[in-house]
């Protein structure tokens, strides 16, 4: 039995295909990204935001949990509080830096898990076809029949608040769309000649999936899941804003907006600050995803 576990480039050479393209697909993607300064800039911003969350303990000027009765709801620049204080007198800047840890985790982790689970389900459904496809895709259709925020609110509303429940409900929200993208891409590739050829040479199913299917569906899946990150961040902080998701006194951007909302008549500007973090993060992730989409030349 021939060993087919070789790279696509080798495979092309073996099949004697004339190498018209000098660069491989991924090299091309990298090449296009290198000259897309807008995407590079926002990519750098994303890295900066993530780093500032990781190194929050080093960057934060104060303890994010330390409340102070005399320093409640102080304006921007009051004493050492660069962005003012919240309703319990805690430093908002420090809470925002720490809040990034939870908000970003709640935004990114569900998409990661959903990409792996939904992607695998979609590839299996698309590759195997038949009854397996029907069972997987019809189940997915049911969850797809809920508007995303409604499904998230329904599940975490029934299970109760908490970070884990919030992430679980968001994961369930993102599995169906990712599964669909993967299934569509896989069933398009499945019947192409090169898959047929691989099968004819005796390649095992797993290696066909790994070499031929994955190589072709990874692009769409990655582009789609990257576009879901900003949606997930918005939904996650939305859940915390509703009192689901993160519970006090943990710092989280959505939760901060929720608790500060009571104070809009006392110190309006400070109350709006945590939302700026959500907005900037969401814009950056969205633009990076747009850049990836055009670099990878994916149409969804």
């Amino acid at each position: 039995m021939a060993n087919i576990t070789m790279s696509p480039a080798d495979a092309a050479a073996v099949q004697g295909a004339p190498s018209v393209r000098v660069r491989s697909y991924w090299q091309n993607v990298g090449y296009r990204l290198r000259y897309d300064y807008l995407t590079l800039f926002f990519g750098a911003m994303v890295i900066l935001i993530i780093l500032s969350a990781i190194f929050a303990p080093l960057l934060a000027p104060m303890d994010p949990y330390q409340s102070s009765l005399i320093n409640r709801l102080k304006p921007i620049g009051y004493k050492d509080f660069l962005l003012g204080t919240d309703e319990l007198g805690r430093d908002i800047l420090s809470r925002m830096l720490y809040g990034g840890r939870i908000s970003l985790t709640m935004g990114i982790v569900p998409v990661l898990i959903a990409t792996i689970v939904g992607g695998s389900l979609g590839i299996v459904a698309g590759f195997v076809g038949g009854r397996t496809n029907m069972i997987i895709m019809r189940t997915v259709d049911v969850f797809y029949a809920f508007p995303s925020i409604l499904l998230a609110v329904a599940i975490s509303g029934a299970m109760g608040g908490g970070i884990v429940n919030g992430m679980l409900s968001l994961t369930l929200v993102f599995i169906p769309p990712l599964c669909r993208v993967a299934e569509t891409a896989t069933s398009q590739v499945r019947n192409l000649d090169f898959v047929e050829a691989a099968r004819a040479t005796g390649a095992r199913t797993l290696s066909i999936i790994r070499v031929h299917i994955l190589g072709n569906v990874l692009g769409p899946i990655l582009v789609y899941s990257s576009s879901m990150v900003s949606v997930s961040i918005l939904l996650a902080s939305g859940l915390s804003f509703l009192g689901l998701g993160v519970t006090p006194p943990e710092p989280d951007w959505g939760l901060m907006l929720n608790t500060l909302r009571q104070a809009i008549y006392i110190n309006p500007v400070v109350c709006a600050i945590p939302g700026v973090a959500i907005l900037i993060t969401s814009i950056c992730f969205n633009l990076v995803s747009d850049g990836l989409r055009s670099a990878m030349d994916v149409r969804l």
């Binding site: 918005l234 907006l257 909302r261 709006a272 945590p274 939302g275 959500i278 907005l279 969401s282 969205n286």
Partner: peptide
Amino acid sequence: VSIPNYWLGIV
């Protein structure tokens, strides 16, 4: 598409 609309509401 990036704006958290609950934040926009507060603003």
